[in-house]
Design a protein around this nucleic acid. Structure first.
Lengths: 126, 126
DNA sequence: TGATCACATGCGCACTTTCTCATATGTTGT
DNA sequence: ACAACATATGAGAAAGTGCGCATGTGATCA
């Protein structure tokens, strides 16, 4: 990132279509199981069986999740004999994962932010 | 970001707890409505009413979504008179939004990747 | 004080996810 | 061709999500 000015890249508004597309990708990431699968693949390709064990998922659940990840090109499959080895689709994926993790690390978990009852900074009027 | 080497930040495996926390944040982002809300706030704070109109949502839906976003500190609320103005929680949020959008722009949408039937790179045996 | 505005919130329901079970499909060795 | 293996897939149950509706709460104005 060049330099953090006020609002650059992300400042543009989002039309309905793009919002839907982005949400689709994010939904794929928004699951503990799939996140674990993706991070497991960060270190290199793995067979479905190996992934299942590494992530504590059943073979079936793993396969279902991989199908989803495949459909939006977050992972790719390569067959070798009986097994199928999965890998992150390209270098953008680990970058995205890093960005997400980075954001998470800078977030304080304690206060649930219960919307302060009377918090007004004094009625500026109008 | 320092420099994009092979695998740095994101390469570490994800324990179950962290996966769950990350997924919680991502679930909040994985909704067209909430994405639109967040991007609308990229240009500055807005009242609930203004947000609702900008995003094509009802007052109720907007409020429900804002509550969720608040609970995980993606937005913050400030009261001024009768209205409540929302803003992105901090500078990390637009950065994350930018990262997500960036990833999305580098993704080709056409092929649904139907898992090539016979795609083996030749049985390497083993 | 009462009316009205701006927003929050509980409930309920339609819709979606995620996982398990059972079974189908593609692969290898005999 | 058959048995064993590795993965994919469909159906369905349980749990979670998104939003409308009705109503509650805090703030302003007359």
């Amino acid at each position: 990132m060049p330099h953090p000015s006020e609002h650059d890249e992300a400042a543009r508004a989002l039309d309905v279509d793009e919002a839907a597309e982005l949400a689709e990708t994010l939904k794929a990431l928004a699951s503990p199981s799939r996140l674990r699968v993706l991070y497991a693949l960060s270190s290199g390709e793995l067979s479905v069986e190996a992934l299942a064990e590494a992530c504590g998922l059943s073979q079936s659940a793993t396969s279902h999740n991989l199908r989803l990840l495949r459909s939006i090109k977050l992972v790719r499959a390569r067959r070798d004999g009986r097994r199928v080895f999965y890998a992150l689709y390209d270098h953008h994926v680990p970058e995205l994962l890093a960005a997400i993790r980075h954001h998470h690390e800078h977030l304080a978990p304690p206060a649930p932010t219960p919307l302060p009852a009377t918090l007004a900074g004094r009625p500026t009027r109008r």
